[in-house]
Amino acid sequence: MLDWLQNIGQAGLRVFQRLGHATLFMLQILVSIPVLFRHPRLLIHELYSVGVLSLAIIVISGLTVGMVLGLQMYNTLVDFGTEDSLGPVVALSLVRELGPVLTALLFSGRAGSALTAEIGLMKATDQLSVMEMMAVDPLKRVVVPRYMAGVISMPLLAAMFSAVGILGSYMVGVGMLGVDDGAFWSQMQDKVMLDEDVLNGVIKSIVFGMAASWIAVFEGYDAVPTTEGVSRATTRTVVHTAFAVLGLDFVLTAIMFGDQ
């Protein structure tokens, strides 16, 4: 019984230690960001592997989610004779919630896990160590460009997800189910506010981008430098990102839309 309590206590201490470690790591990243102004090419290279390579999965998922939303919402709305509000319903759910959240989850599966694995393997094969011995700070050279690429890519990817999703629901709603073309767009413009809905969605995606990239680079940098350690770290990245994004989404939604 005492052992059991002791184990819980130690597990708790470990969690706090890790959180503290991760926070210090984050601060180190933040103060090192100016290094990118001197080496912008590092960032471009990472934007390619983080952003460009995530494009396909984001566009395809966005389109599919938009089409499914269009179909499902239409079936509900048509019962009340309000199928004209398909546009705003789909646009609001995408711009406010599904765009940022699903993009962050897909991002952690596609780019976040790759970042963790890459950094973890560099650590396991002494590439980070050798950089240190060459008087090159691996935090600045390896971690910061990857982190910033994630932070920059996420809002862009989320915007693309929402935009493509709305086009998908347009194809289904207007193209196949016969919702009026004009009503679809004009109702959407009537209901979706740039300053509240779109802007809040963008803020969400920026916050998610910061969290997802932070988790990914930290897990990689902190991975046990063995094959098993890196594969565990990769799994942790995806799981922790999912928890973090969903938790943050609830908090942000409560702050942004709670008073309506």
Partner: peptide
């Protein structure tokens, strides 16, 4: 372009 669409076409 996606931001532009969200600003111009989707919202008012």
């Amino acid at each position: 372009a996606a931001f532009f669409m969200l600003a111009m076409k989707v919202s008012n």
